[in-house]
Amino acid sequence: MIETQNLSVRLAHTEAVRDVSLRFEPGRFYGLVGPNGSGKTTLLRALAGLVAPSAGEVQIDDRALSSLSLSGRAARIGYLPQTRSISWDLTVREIVQLGAQRFRDAEARADAALNEVGLSAVAHRRVFSLSGGQTARVLLARLLATACPILLLDEPLTALDPAWQRQGLGVLKAAAARGHVVIASLHDLGLAAAFCDSVYVMHDGRVAGFGTPEQVFTPPLLAEVFHLNGGFRASDDGPALHLAAHPVSSLTSLSDHYS
């Protein structure tokens, strides 16, 4: 379990995360959604211990994150950053093995993770020869190979095609089902609604909503936070999130919408 109490993070002169109290349980897949600049990345980096809070703290299983050693953190928290830069042209297997390097059977673990993201066939290839989407899957496999109980992912779906966005979320859901805490920042609200057990909505560094996707994605919240018209509707497969093609363009149209 990982939680924050009144967490604030200051970056340069702006408070990117403000007074946020959250709680993430094992066995659940959490979506972290919010517009650009709402504080998702900073929150994830604070949860990973990569940026120090200006107030409050992060706790893992009732221990302060700041009290854990670097290796203690590394054994508990796996983090997939948003930037996907790879400096050297290692093989796919070597990259994934980096995730498992604290284990003796790193190679076997790397192969299992590659299998999970459907890249066993390219394990021996050089990573620079892969497409952007395949590279994103290699890095996801690197994260899975860490076998950390808590997995944090910053926009893991970027560069993935629609089929693999769903497959990737399926992999994360499966990881949650195995008992991991999985927290991923996502931009696609429809996918977040379809795959996540719970959703935190960030807005201006604060939590603007928390609950199951159905509880959270209400028309007023979608309009206020995302400037989108939409909400849950019944469909053949049960309730699903529907979003209008055009954003709410201004406050006038917002008030029109509700008048």
């Binding site: 980096r45 670097l70 997939l80 950053p81 830069s85 790879i86 980096l98 995730g99 604290r102």
Partner: peptide, 20 residues
């Protein structure tokens, strides 16, 4: 060794995997 290798994936990844 482990640090230089992990830096291949950037400083955040390296730190998250315990590199000082």
């Amino acid at each position: 060794g482990p640090g230089l290798r992990l830096l291949t994936l950037g400083e955040d990844t390296a730190r998250s995997q315990g590199v000082d």
